[in-house]
Amino acid sequence: MIEVKNVTKSFAGRVVLDNVSVNFEQGKTNLIIGQSGSGKTVLLKSIVGLHDIDSGEILFDEIDFTRMNFADKKEIRKEIGMLFQGGALFDSSNVEENVRFPLDMFTEMSLHEKLDRVNFCLKCVKLENANKLYPSELSGGMKKRVAIARAISLNPKYLLCDEPNSGLDPMTSLVIDSLIKEITEEFNITTIVNTHDMNSVMEIGEKIIFLKEGILAWEGTKKDIFKTDNEAITDFVYSSNLFKKIRKSQNKED
């Protein structure tokens, strides 16, 4: 479980996260939704310590991460798999080396075992026969999938994904979503996913938090989303016509 307690973060006086408190539960896919610029990425990066927060606390399974020194943070971070919004693949390494990197760094596996693991992870993201390609030779969606493979290669205890399916076609997007949900349940991981894709919300959202201009404006499950009267979230959700129709038909049934 990852607990975020009263976290505030500002850049040059501009508040981007305003007193956010939320628990991300273990074995569940926790979703952070919100408009572009609402602070989703900043929240994710604050959780893992890439941004220093102004005030508040972050706890990883009850261990206070905020006040840890660099060496202890490193130990926790070995358990974190993170997918960056832009992928953040290592340009000078090919696909295989990218996914293998955490294994090289932190395990004593033989090369053969490592390659098996790499190929397994690449298969999970439906990316076979791309082992020797370099990031510059990949499409945007392929990069994203390699980055997911890298994030899960060490069997993380915490998986943080910043928009795992932006830039992917609906089919692949579905595959990635179900992959995230599967490994979360199978390995009892604490997973946090940033998204503004309502399809993902309906596919994998168990616990959902809604950020609006840095404020936690709503919290609930995907069922709750259609029942709530919270204006901020209905505006966000029903900006899609499809969901307007769903809402209408649901209201008729009631």
């Binding site: 990066k45 893992v48 890439l50 660099f70 490193k74 130990e75 926790i76 971070r77 070995k78 974190i80 993170m82 960056f84 832009g86 953040a88 693949l89 290592f90 340009d91 990197f101 955490p102 760094m105 932190f106």
Partner: peptide, 18 residues
């Protein structure tokens, strides 16, 4: 610099690498 702005350095840090 390129590694920094494309978050490759952040990715290393998150893995627990100095």
């Amino acid at each position: 610099g390129t590694m920094r702005v494309t978050e490759q350095i952040d990715a290393l840090e998150i893995m627990g690498v100095n």
